[in-house]
Protein backbone atom coordinates (compact mmCIF):
# COMPACT_ATOMS: atom_id res chain seq x y z
CA UNK A 1 0.00 0.00 0.00
CA UNK A 2 2.72 2.43 -0.92
CA UNK A 3 3.45 4.93 -3.61
CA UNK A 4 2.54 2.48 -6.34
CA UNK A 5 -0.95 2.00 -4.95
CA UNK A 6 -1.57 5.75 -4.86
CA UNK A 7 -0.25 6.19 -8.36
CA UNK A 8 -1.96 3.30 -10.11
CA UNK A 9 -4.96 2.23 -8.06
CA UNK A 10 -6.27 5.07 -5.92
CA UNK A 11 -7.89 7.16 -8.64
CA UNK A 12 -9.45 4.23 -10.54
CA UNK A 13 -10.93 2.91 -7.30
CA UNK A 14 -12.31 6.33 -6.40
CA UNK A 15 -13.76 6.79 -9.89
CA UNK A 16 -15.27 3.32 -9.72
CA UNK A 17 -16.84 4.04 -6.33
CA UNK A 18 -18.28 7.39 -7.40
CA UNK A 19 -19.67 5.90 -10.63
CA UNK A 20 -21.23 3.02 -8.76
CA UNK A 21 -22.87 5.30 -6.19
CA UNK A 22 -24.06 7.80 -8.79
CA UNK A 23 -25.83 4.99 -10.65
CA UNK A 24 -27.09 3.11 -7.59
CA UNK A 25 -28.89 6.11 -6.06
CA UNK A 26 -31.39 6.67 -8.89
CA UNK A 27 -31.42 2.90 -9.44
CA UNK A 28 -33.25 2.44 -6.12
CA UNK A 29 -36.22 4.42 -7.37
CA UNK A 30 -36.11 2.97 -10.89
CA UNK A 31 -36.40 -0.53 -9.43
CA UNK A 32 -39.29 0.37 -7.17
CA UNK A 33 -41.08 2.03 -10.09
CA UNK A 34 -40.51 -1.00 -12.33
CA UNK A 35 -38.42 1.10 -14.70
CA UNK A 36 -35.18 -0.79 -14.18
CA UNK A 37 -34.62 -1.25 -17.89
CA UNK A 38 -34.55 2.50 -18.58
CA UNK A 39 -30.94 2.23 -17.42
CA UNK A 40 -30.33 -0.47 -20.01
CA UNK A 41 -31.83 1.66 -22.77
CA UNK A 42 -29.91 4.79 -21.75
CA UNK A 43 -26.58 3.01 -21.62
CA UNK A 44 -27.12 1.74 -25.17
CA UNK A 45 -27.96 5.11 -26.69
CA UNK A 46 -24.94 6.82 -25.17
CA UNK A 47 -22.82 5.51 -28.06
CA UNK A 48 -24.78 7.23 -30.89
CA UNK A 49 -24.83 10.42 -28.80
CA UNK A 50 -21.07 10.43 -28.48
CA UNK A 51 -20.54 9.59 -32.15
CA UNK A 52 -22.82 12.39 -33.31
CA UNK A 53 -21.14 14.82 -30.92
CA UNK A 54 -17.79 13.83 -32.38
CA UNK A 55 -19.08 14.31 -35.93
CA UNK A 56 -20.42 17.77 -35.13
CA UNK A 57 -17.41 19.07 -33.22
CA UNK A 58 -14.62 16.99 -34.71
CA UNK A 59 -12.82 16.63 -31.39
CA UNK A 60 -12.80 14.06 -28.64
CA UNK A 61 -13.42 16.37 -25.71
CA UNK A 62 -15.37 15.75 -22.57
CA UNK A 63 -17.99 18.48 -22.70
CA UNK A 64 -19.33 17.92 -26.25
CA UNK A 65 -19.30 14.17 -25.71
CA UNK A 66 -21.18 14.40 -22.43
CA UNK A 67 -23.76 16.77 -23.87
CA UNK A 68 -24.12 14.56 -26.94
CA UNK A 69 -24.70 11.52 -24.77
CA UNK A 70 -27.15 13.34 -22.54
CA UNK A 71 -28.99 14.63 -25.62
CA UNK A 72 -29.20 11.11 -27.02
CA UNK A 73 -30.57 9.83 -23.72
CA UNK A 74 -33.31 12.47 -23.76
CA UNK A 75 -34.08 11.81 -27.45
CA UNK A 76 -34.36 8.11 -26.63
CA UNK A 77 -36.75 8.67 -23.73
CA UNK A 78 -38.93 10.95 -25.88
CA UNK A 79 -38.88 8.46 -28.78
CA UNK A 80 -39.80 5.56 -26.50
CA UNK A 81 -42.74 7.54 -25.17
CA UNK A 82 -43.78 8.53 -28.72
CA UNK A 83 -43.62 4.98 -30.07
CA UNK A 84 -45.49 3.73 -27.01
CA UNK A 85 -48.31 6.24 -27.47
CA UNK A 86 -48.54 6.39 -31.28
CA UNK A 87 -48.31 2.65 -31.80
CA UNK A 88 -50.06 1.58 -28.56
CA UNK A 89 -47.11 -0.73 -27.88
CA UNK A 90 -46.14 -2.06 -24.47
CA UNK A 91 -43.20 -0.17 -22.89
CA UNK A 92 -40.66 -3.02 -23.00
CA UNK A 93 -41.08 -3.57 -26.72
CA UNK A 94 -41.09 0.17 -27.45
CA UNK A 95 -37.82 0.44 -25.54
CA UNK A 96 -36.36 -2.49 -27.46
CA UNK A 97 -37.27 -0.93 -30.80
CA UNK A 98 -35.83 2.48 -29.99
CA UNK A 99 -32.55 1.68 -28.28
CA UNK A 100 -31.46 -1.04 -30.71
CA UNK A 101 -32.18 1.21 -33.67
CA UNK A 102 -30.26 4.10 -32.15
CA UNK A 103 -27.35 1.83 -31.24
CA UNK A 104 -27.27 0.39 -34.76
CA UNK A 105 -27.28 3.89 -36.21
CA UNK A 106 -24.41 4.81 -33.89
CA UNK A 107 -22.32 1.84 -35.00
CA UNK A 108 -23.04 2.54 -38.67
CA UNK A 109 -22.07 6.21 -38.41
CA UNK A 110 -18.95 5.23 -36.51
CA UNK A 111 -17.97 2.79 -39.27
CA UNK A 112 -18.73 5.31 -41.97
CA UNK A 113 -16.63 8.13 -40.54
CA UNK A 114 -12.91 8.11 -40.25
CA UNK A 115 -12.20 7.84 -36.55
CA UNK A 116 -8.86 6.13 -36.91
CA UNK A 117 -7.11 9.28 -35.66
CA UNK A 118 -9.00 9.33 -32.41
CA UNK A 119 -9.63 6.88 -29.67
CA UNK A 120 -13.28 6.18 -30.29
CA UNK A 121 -14.51 2.67 -30.77
CA UNK A 122 -17.36 0.47 -29.71
CA UNK A 123 -15.34 -1.77 -27.44
CA UNK A 124 -13.98 1.19 -25.53
CA UNK A 125 -17.51 2.47 -25.14
CA UNK A 126 -18.63 -0.86 -23.73
CA UNK A 127 -15.73 -1.76 -21.52
CA UNK A 128 -14.48 1.63 -20.45
CA UNK A 129 -10.92 2.17 -19.52
CA UNK A 130 -10.83 2.34 -15.79
CA UNK A 131 -7.29 0.96 -15.55
CA UNK A 132 -5.82 3.79 -17.60
CA UNK A 133 -7.09 6.58 -15.35
CA UNK A 134 -3.94 6.66 -13.28
CA UNK A 135 -2.40 9.52 -11.33
CA UNK A 136 0.94 10.06 -13.02
CA UNK A 137 2.31 12.73 -10.70
CA UNK A 138 1.66 10.91 -7.46
CA UNK A 139 4.68 9.77 -5.54
CA UNK A 140 3.02 8.47 -2.41
CA UNK A 141 0.35 9.28 0.13
CA UNK A 142 1.94 12.68 0.75
CA UNK A 143 0.92 13.68 -2.79
CA UNK A 144 -2.63 14.01 -1.50
CA UNK A 145 -1.62 17.32 0.11
CA UNK A 146 0.69 18.41 -2.69
CA UNK A 147 -1.09 20.93 -4.96
CA UNK A 148 1.21 20.28 -7.92
CA UNK A 149 0.50 16.57 -7.84
CA UNK A 150 -3.21 17.14 -7.22
CA UNK A 151 -3.42 19.22 -10.39
CA UNK A 152 -2.39 16.11 -12.29
CA UNK A 153 -5.39 14.07 -11.19
CA UNK A 154 -7.44 12.80 -14.14
CA UNK A 155 -10.37 15.07 -15.08
CA UNK A 156 -12.72 12.11 -15.01
CA UNK A 157 -12.35 11.95 -11.25
CA UNK A 158 -13.62 15.48 -10.74
CA UNK A 159 -16.47 15.06 -13.19
CA UNK A 160 -17.79 11.85 -11.72
CA UNK A 161 -17.32 13.17 -8.18
CA UNK A 162 -19.30 16.30 -9.05
CA UNK A 163 -22.09 14.27 -10.68
CA UNK A 164 -22.19 11.89 -7.75
CA UNK A 165 -22.44 14.80 -5.30
CA UNK A 166 -25.14 16.46 -7.39
CA UNK A 167 -27.23 13.30 -7.51
CA UNK A 168 -26.82 12.73 -3.79
CA UNK A 169 -27.84 16.33 -3.17
CA UNK A 170 -30.90 16.08 -5.44
CA UNK A 171 -31.92 12.82 -3.79
CA UNK A 172 -31.72 14.53 -0.40
CA UNK A 173 -33.56 17.69 -1.44
CA UNK A 174 -36.39 15.91 -3.24
CA UNK A 175 -36.47 12.98 -0.84
CA UNK A 176 -40.09 13.30 0.27
CA UNK A 177 -41.37 13.96 -3.24
CA UNK A 178 -39.44 11.02 -4.62
CA UNK A 179 -40.59 8.71 -1.89
CA UNK A 180 -44.25 9.61 -2.11
CA UNK A 181 -44.35 9.72 -5.91
CA UNK A 182 -42.62 6.35 -6.13
CA UNK A 183 -44.90 4.49 -3.77
CA UNK A 184 -48.25 6.12 -4.50
CA UNK A 185 -48.39 8.33 -7.54
CA UNK A 186 -52.09 9.12 -7.22
CA UNK A 187 -51.69 10.19 -3.61
CA UNK A 188 -48.67 12.29 -4.56
CA UNK A 189 -50.72 14.15 -7.15
CA UNK A 190 -53.56 14.58 -4.71
CA UNK A 191 -51.31 16.32 -2.18
CA UNK A 192 -49.88 18.58 -4.86
CA UNK A 193 -46.58 16.88 -5.67
CA UNK A 194 -45.75 17.17 -9.40
CA UNK A 195 -45.44 13.39 -9.80
CA UNK A 196 -44.93 13.47 -13.57
CA UNK A 197 -42.11 16.00 -13.23
CA UNK A 198 -40.53 13.88 -10.49
CA UNK A 199 -40.63 10.90 -12.85
CA UNK A 200 -38.98 12.85 -15.67
CA UNK A 201 -36.42 14.31 -13.28
CA UNK A 202 -35.52 10.84 -12.11
CA UNK A 203 -34.94 9.63 -15.66
CA UNK A 204 -32.83 12.70 -16.44
CA UNK A 205 -30.79 12.05 -13.29
CA UNK A 206 -30.31 8.45 -14.33
CA UNK A 207 -29.17 9.63 -17.76
CA UNK A 208 -26.74 12.06 -16.17
CA UNK A 209 -25.30 9.32 -13.96
CA UNK A 210 -25.09 6.91 -16.90
CA UNK A 211 -23.31 9.43 -19.09
CA UNK A 212 -20.82 10.53 -16.47
CA UNK A 213 -20.07 6.98 -15.39
CA UNK A 214 -19.84 5.86 -18.99
CA UNK A 215 -17.18 8.47 -19.62
CA UNK A 216 -14.98 6.79 -17.03
CA UNK A 217 -15.94 3.16 -16.83
CA UNK A 218 -17.93 2.12 -19.92
CA UNK A 219 -21.52 1.07 -20.21
CA UNK A 220 -21.48 -2.47 -18.74
CA UNK A 221 -20.83 -1.20 -15.28
CA UNK A 222 -23.61 1.34 -15.74
CA UNK A 223 -26.28 -1.31 -16.35
CA UNK A 224 -25.04 -3.51 -13.53
CA UNK A 225 -24.76 -0.61 -11.06
CA UNK A 226 -28.23 0.74 -11.82
CA UNK A 227 -29.74 -2.57 -10.87
CA UNK A 228 -27.60 -4.93 -8.80
CA UNK A 229 -26.81 -2.89 -5.66
CA UNK A 230 -30.37 -1.48 -5.31
CA UNK A 231 -31.89 -4.90 -6.02
CA UNK A 232 -29.69 -6.53 -3.40
CA UNK A 233 -30.52 -3.70 -0.98
CA UNK A 234 -34.21 -4.24 -1.63
CA UNK A 235 -33.84 -7.77 -0.25
CA UNK A 236 -32.13 -6.54 2.91
CA UNK A 237 -34.72 -4.17 4.33
CA UNK A 238 -38.28 -2.90 4.15
CA UNK A 239 -37.39 0.73 4.74
CA UNK A 240 -36.47 3.01 1.85
CA UNK A 241 -33.95 4.96 3.95
CA UNK A 242 -32.03 1.83 4.91
CA UNK A 243 -32.37 0.46 1.39
CA UNK A 244 -30.59 3.53 0.06
CA UNK A 245 -27.73 3.13 2.53
CA UNK A 246 -27.45 -0.58 1.80
CA UNK A 247 -27.30 0.14 -1.92
CA UNK A 248 -24.54 2.71 -1.43
CA UNK A 249 -22.62 0.21 0.69
CA UNK A 250 -23.06 -2.56 -1.88
CA UNK A 251 -22.04 -0.23 -4.72
CA UNK A 252 -18.90 0.82 -2.86
CA UNK A 253 -18.05 -2.76 -1.96
CA UNK A 254 -18.51 -3.91 -5.58
CA UNK A 255 -16.32 -1.13 -6.92
CA UNK A 256 -13.46 -1.62 -4.45
CA UNK A 257 -13.53 -5.41 -4.38
CA UNK A 258 -14.04 -5.63 -8.15
CA UNK A 259 -11.11 -3.38 -8.89
CA UNK A 260 -8.81 -5.18 -6.46
CA UNK A 261 -9.83 -8.61 -7.77
CA UNK A 262 -9.33 -7.51 -11.37
CA UNK A 263 -5.98 -5.89 -10.72
CA UNK A 264 -4.42 -8.24 -8.23
CA UNK A 265 -6.57 -11.39 -8.37
CA UNK A 266 -4.97 -12.89 -11.49
CA UNK A 267 -1.53 -12.36 -9.93
CA UNK A 268 -2.54 -14.57 -6.99
CA UNK A 269 -3.34 -17.33 -9.48
CA UNK A 270 0.01 -16.92 -11.16
CA UNK A 271 -1.23 -15.11 -14.25
CA UNK A 272 0.71 -12.09 -15.37
CA UNK A 273 -2.00 -9.78 -16.72
CA UNK A 274 -4.91 -8.06 -15.05
CA UNK A 275 -8.46 -8.58 -16.31
CA UNK A 276 -11.11 -5.97 -17.11
CA UNK A 277 -11.88 -3.97 -13.96
CA UNK A 278 -15.28 -2.80 -15.18
CA UNK A 279 -16.29 -6.37 -15.93
CA UNK A 280 -15.05 -7.55 -12.56
CA UNK A 281 -16.96 -4.81 -10.73
CA UNK A 282 -20.14 -5.93 -12.49
CA UNK A 283 -19.33 -9.54 -11.59
CA UNK A 284 -18.85 -8.74 -7.92
CA UNK A 285 -22.11 -6.78 -7.82
CA UNK A 286 -23.79 -9.83 -9.30
CA UNK A 287 -22.30 -12.08 -6.65
CA UNK A 288 -23.57 -9.73 -3.96
CA UNK A 289 -27.04 -9.81 -5.50
CA UNK A 290 -26.85 -13.61 -5.68
CA UNK A 291 -26.01 -13.81 -1.97
CA UNK A 292 -28.83 -11.40 -1.17
CA UNK A 293 -31.24 -13.56 -3.19
CA UNK A 294 -30.17 -16.62 -1.21
CA UNK A 295 -29.86 -15.19 2.29
CA UNK A 296 -31.35 -11.67 2.34
CA UNK A 297 -33.70 -11.29 5.32
CA UNK A 298 -36.49 -9.79 3.20
CA UNK A 299 -36.01 -11.81 0.04
CA UNK A 300 -39.51 -13.31 -0.13
CA UNK A 301 -42.64 -11.62 -1.30
CA UNK A 302 -44.91 -10.82 1.59
CA UNK A 303 -47.25 -13.77 2.01
CA UNK A 304 -45.10 -16.16 0.00
CA UNK A 305 -43.89 -19.31 1.67
CA UNK A 306 -40.27 -20.34 1.92
CA UNK A 307 -40.42 -22.27 -1.32
CA UNK A 308 -41.23 -19.33 -3.52
CA UNK A 309 -44.52 -19.67 -5.33
CA UNK A 310 -47.45 -18.63 -3.13
Amino acid sequence: MGAEFVQFSLTPILIGVFSAIACALPGNFLILRRQALIGDAISHVVLPGIVVAFLLTGVVAAIPMLSGAAGAAIVAVVLIETVKRLGKIEPGAAMGVVFTTMFAAGVLILEQTDTSQVHLDVEHALMGNLESLIWFRAEGWHSLVDPVALAGLPDELFRIAAVCALIALLTGVFWRWLKVATFDEAFARAVGIPAAAVGIGLVVCAALAAVAAFDAVGSIIVIAMFICPPAAARLMTNRLESQLWWSVAFATLSAVLGYVLAGYGPLWFGARNAVSAAGMIATVSGLILGLACLYGPHRNRIGANRHGTP
Binding site: I31, R34, Q35, A36, L37, G39, D40, G92, L126, M127, I220, I221, I223, A224, M225, F226, I227, C228, A231, R234, L235, A262, V275, S276, A278, G279, M280, I281, A282, T283, S285, G286, L289, C293, G296, H298, R299, N300, R301, I302, A304
Partner: peptide, 22 residues
Amino acid sequence: TRLAEDAAIGAVLGVFFGVGIV
Protein backbone atom coordinates in the same frame (compact mmCIF):
# COMPACT_ATOMS: atom_id res chain seq x y z
CA THR B 1 -37.54 -13.35 -4.49
CA ARG B 2 -39.71 -10.28 -4.47
CA LEU B 3 -37.75 -8.58 -7.23
CA ALA B 4 -39.77 -7.82 -10.35
CA GLU B 5 -38.92 -9.32 -13.73
CA ASP B 6 -37.43 -6.11 -15.11
CA ALA B 7 -34.92 -5.98 -12.24
CA ALA B 8 -34.04 -9.64 -12.83
CA ILE B 9 -33.57 -9.00 -16.55
CA GLY B 10 -31.33 -6.00 -15.93
CA ALA B 11 -29.28 -7.78 -13.28
CA VAL B 12 -28.65 -10.87 -15.41
CA LEU B 13 -27.88 -8.72 -18.44
CA GLY B 14 -25.36 -6.51 -16.68
CA VAL B 15 -23.66 -9.20 -14.63
CA PHE B 16 -23.34 -11.84 -17.36
CA PHE B 17 -22.00 -9.23 -19.73
CA GLY B 18 -19.50 -8.13 -17.09
CA VAL B 19 -18.35 -11.73 -16.59
CA GLY B 20 -18.08 -12.07 -20.36
CA ILE B 21 -15.87 -9.01 -20.62
CA VAL B 22 -13.63 -10.36 -17.85
